[in-house]
Design a binder for these strands. Structure first.
Length: 577
DNA sequence: GCCGTTTTCGGCCCGACTGTTTTCAGTCG
């Protein structure tokens, strides 16, 4: 089992324990462990072999033993026992919006409902309203919840590339015609997480009521989950849940911190506040011994109150940012404005939609100084990969466009070369050495055994013509896990060869992940942030790559896209010699 | 079940909203 499957199993255990009425803190312990495992940057199997599972925060002796059992046997006896007791369908019922552990248990124990279908039928027939605390409205709510659950079952978390533009569009709509003063997208979008559970919007306004009304009556709202003066929630037609909160301007800082999270980060900040005799919530600091609230209208003021400099939202995951802030060693994070180049993009020569000239001009409009055209190589048949002959023809066109643009932006010739299933490069050395820049990527046979797929990448890294490994793991968001790679071995090879590793900015890739990129930077591996654009519009995906890099603590000195063109040319020439 | 510079016990976030309740329980974030 991989990390995600282990995490899912613990999440399931937490569900079943909660339905059983287990004390909430034991339930939360399993949920915390599941979350920690899901985000753990290393392979659990390796960590288990090192006997280091208990170094994962939230994993103690007992859960470590359970992880070991799962990894050794593929099952967990504790889970089997629970599963024999709590029907699977009751766990499904727990996931219906509006149903919590108490109701799931009541439906099961009092009404004998053990599947979603049974619950749905009972609600339709009006049989739930006789149960305590239930009425006609709750039945309706449950029916809607079941429908929503089924809608979400196909696409669980929403990619950042959908959630962020949606959030910005809603804020823009709310701001026209109403009295919105300050506004922000908070939550995991602001932290740049690759997938989003729901959208958190925060505003200040002297007159919130009309804003709330406008919000719940937007055209794209599928249903209203809540509608109050300070908080409203809706579900959009695309399944995304959006929460809108109105806060007083003088409490903007505490509220924005609180709703940006992460939860783990907030808990640490609260503890720092408690050390100073202050309790902290979304409204204010309050002296624990009594006394007046301390209000913060900015996030800077919140951090200052606990003796810290401002911590950028992308770092707020309790992954060392608080210690770094205390020591004054917060990273100087990469910013979009520092990016001078895009080293991975496609044109109509392979599977892109724009010409070389169009891509170059669009890149120039976005402030870039140089680009590399990297169409697919011949092995990528489905993507109209270039034969050696077409590659040579393309070289002529690129030289021509580069000359025509007259230095306003430089255009270089590269390839995104297949790393074939047998590990051999798709072009021979004598072809590669005619190119300015070579990206090598895995597209096929990602499900090969760990040793084999790892060997393929290492082989590519040892080719002196290869400058960059594109989207190293091959993950697709939210559907496909990356290849089962020994990334530590891959990184060791990359550090030795000086080959760059990509943070692919396409919102469906975001690969390397933030945590893997952070590790790569630690090892001194050059990082490259590229859009892998297949169209002009895709060039705007750079923002997702920047967010991911910042989440990975990436500083500008690690990113080869910040280099002026001379340095880039010198670097590639030296590598190819 | 986890955790620890108030450490081996006793905490672990709590407030808004909803629907049912006739004063509050359950859910959610």
């Amino acid at each position: 089992m991989n990390n995600r499957e282990v995490a899912d199993l613990f999440e399931r255990i937490a569900d079943m324990l909660e339905i059983k009425g287990e004390i909430i803190h034991r339930v939360l312990a399993y949920r915390n462990a599941a979350q920690a495992i899901r985000e753990f940057p290393r392979d659990l199997r390796v960590t288990a072999a090192e006997n280091a599972l208990e170094t994962i925060p939230g994993v103690g002796k007992i859960i470590a033993e359970k992880i070991t059992e799962i990894l050794d046997t593929g099952t967990l006896e504790f889970h089997e026992r629970l599963a024999a007791e709590v029907p699977t369908g009751v766990v499904d019922i727990l996931h219906v919006n509006g149903v919590g552990p108490k109701k799931a248990r009541m439906f099961w124990q009092e009404a004998g409902l053990t599947t979603l279908a049974q619950l749905e039928q009972a609600a339709r027939e009006g049989k739930l309203r006789s149960l305590p605390g239930m009425g006609a409205k709750s039945e309706q709510r449950i029916l809607e919840g079941i429908e929503s659950l089924r809608r979400r079952a196909s696409d669980t978390r929403i990619p950042l590339g959908i959630a962020l533009p949606t959030a910005e569009r809603i804020l823009k709509a709310l701001r026209s015609g109403t009295q919105v003063d300050q506004f922000a997208v908070a939550g995991s979008i602001r932290r740049g997480r690759p997938t989003i559970g729901d959208v958190d919007l925060l505003i200040t306004s002297a007159e919130p009521k009309p804003i709330m009304d406008a919000f719940v009556h937007m055209e794209e709202v599928a249903r209203i989950l809540g509608h109050g003066d300070s908080k409203s929630s809706v579900e959009l037609l695309n399944g995304l849940q959006v929460d809108l909160r109105v806060v007083p301007a003088e409490r903007w800082g505490t509220a924005l911190c609180y709703f940006t999270g992460s939860q783990a980060h907030n808990i640490r900040i609260r503890h720092l506040a408690l050390d100073r005799g202050l309790s902290l919530n979304e409204f204010a600091f309050t002296p624990t011994g009594g006394g007046n609230e301390i209000l913060c209208s900015t996030e800077e003021a919140v951090y200052a109150q606990v003796g810290l400099p401002f911590i950028p939202p992308e770092l707020r995951e309790d992954r060392g940012e608080i210690e770094a802030a205390q020591k004054g060693t917060l990273p100087d994070l990469i910013e979009a404005g520092q990016i001078q180049s895009n080293l991975h993009m496609h044109t109509t020569w392979s599977d892109g939609t724009a010409s070389i000239r169009e891509m170059a001009e669009a890149a120039r409009e976005r402030g870039l100084r140089y680009i590399v055209i990297t169409d697919h190589s011949r092995g990528a048949v489905i993507a109209n990969g270039l034969s050696i002959e077409r590659l040579q023809e393309q070289a002529n066109e690129i030289r021509r466009v580069d000359a025509e643009l007259n230095g306003s932006i430089r255009v270089f010739h590269g390839t995104e070369m297949e790393i074939k299933a047998d590990g051999t490069p798709d072009f021979p050395d004598e072809v590669l050495e005619t190119l300015d820049f070579v990206v090598a990527s895995l597209h096929v046979s990602l499900r090969q055994p760990r040793e084999q797929v790892t060997r393929r990448l290492i082989h590519a890294l040892q080719n002196r013509h290869v400058d960059l490994i594109g989207h190293p793991t091959g993950q697709l968001i939210p559907d496909r896990d990356g290849a089962d790679l020994d990334l530590e071995a891959v990184f060791t090879a990359a550090a030795a060869s000086g080959t760059a590793m990509e943070i692919n900015a396409s919102p469906e890739r975001l690969d390397l992940t933030a945590q893997n990129a952070r590790r790569a930077q630690e090892l001194g591996i050059p990082i490259s942030i590229n859009t892998d654009a297949h169209s002009i519009a895709d060039l705007d995906n750079l923002r997702y790559g920047i967010l991911t890099a910042r989440r990975g603590w990436i500083e500008s000195h690690s990113v080869i896209n910040t280099w002026p063109v001379d340095r880039f040319v010198t670097w590639t020439r030296q590598r190819h010699e």
